[in-house]
Design a binder for these strands. Sequence first.
RNA 1: GGAAAGAUGGCGGAGUGGUCUAACGCGGCGGUCUUGAAAACCGUUGAACCGAGAGGUUCCGGGGGUUCGAAUCCCUCUCUUUCCGCCA
Length: 469
Amino acid sequence: MLTLKQIYDNREAIVSGLEKKHFLDASVAIEKVVSLDQDRKAAQQKRDAASQQMNLIAKSIGQLMAQGKRDEAEEAKKQTGTLKQDIAAYEAEMAKAEEAQTAILLTIPNVPYDLVPEGKSAEDNLAVKIGNFSLSAEGDPTASAVLQRSGLPAEGGLSYQGNPNCGVALRDWKDEWNPESKEARLPHWELAKKYNLIDFDLGVKISGAGFPVYIGQGARLQRALINFFLAEANKAGYTEIMPPTVVNPASGYGTGQLPDKEGQMYHCEVDDLYLIPTAEVPVTNIYRDVIIDEDQLPIKNCAYTECFRREAGSYGKDVRGLNRLHEFSKIEIVRIDSPEHSEASHREMLDHVEGLLKKLELPYRILRLCGGDMSFTAAICYDFEVYSEAQHRWLEVSSTSNFDTYQANRLKCRYRKAEDKKVSLCHTLNGSALALPRIVAALLENNQCEEGIRIPKALQPYFGADMIR
RNA sequence: GGAAAGAUGGCGGAGUGGUCUAACGCGGCGGUCUUGAAAACCGUUGAACCGAGAGGUUCCGGGGGUUCGAAUCCCUCUCUUUCCGCCA
């Protein structure tokens, strides 16, 4: 939620920022918020004055009673009748204005930073970096298209060199795109079957579509990745948290899943608890209604949890295999920081996530999301995507965002400055580091070779073998 | 699931209708003393909102009620603790 101070201080910048996020009628909404605030202030001034008078009378009655001046006390009592009604009326006025104001504020998304590119959809995201990829191939229309979409300058030709450390044969993009290619690679759902790693049908039997059963080496790979990601986060100074995976409504409101995204969460109605869609929810809500001393910042937490998403309304190849699940494992990193330092924190988080992808030797790109594709609450967001060879597409594996004070305002997460002891809102940040399923998909697809599936070196100690056979 | 007790400031904890502007203790901050530290002593110590300021209003788990006046009385909801039952 935006603060009134933000709105008063930078009204025009906020309106134009909201337009970048494609929030319609921004100026109308802001206008309404301001006028409701004026209403509230006017009502409060009247209420405060009436309350003060009331308090004075009540006090004097007490004194008169103590002095035994019963008649005078009775006389004073008579004055309170209308005052009491007035106070109630003013308070109702205040509450009404405040309620209406909050209702509007909840519909207003966060204002994107200047760095956020203009744009409506995923097409307009700006690729800022590409890694573990070798680009060079002239005159290849597909390759050029990919490059263009990535937003990177097309220098030289384009060919994905495969992954030398994993023993993957060099291979041309053209081959990959050619349906005639005899060497076409298997998609991960076929590899999962071939090596008996994941049983999707069994998941359907036990729970339903989107709940895979990991078996044997497949299960071991999950555990290896979880341990690897947690170990890396710990090395980077994040404190490991193991939170509950169900939360109460207050937590849902705190991080913004409620009220508008209610349908995306599983809800245990009997107890009014929600299954978490991400560890962000419980881990960030630790700091709900908390004032943190500045010297405690930045707070750096990480957590592995299962994540649950109902994700209704998408079908087809986009959701095949591991691409989109109702339950999946994710390691999340969460930071609470001061406004002055949050940008540096965000950069460190991006470096951390990128480091993981480097160590996993997966081809990746980093996108700065455009205004239209960003989440409601983010001020700036970078997505990390890995390239899936067999599916010929980029798979999102991390979203790393700075929410500025937007989330903190709703959470009432504040910090006390060391210098002047003043209290102000924190910045909150979080990112996936990383979500497992699509990492697994890319690892399987990109590292397949005749002998089996190579495990990247960094992961081998956790997996306990260098190959899935 | 049954029964009982409880929810007060950063923490512990008193307060059962009017000087509550919430005692007292711990912690924090500032100071005295000290070469420095500890101890002792003195002072100070929350948040939100309104107001140019002086100052004012609200907040004792949430909501409602009684009263001129509520932390205190009543209703209701939520949560916690303890005991019993069940249980990895």
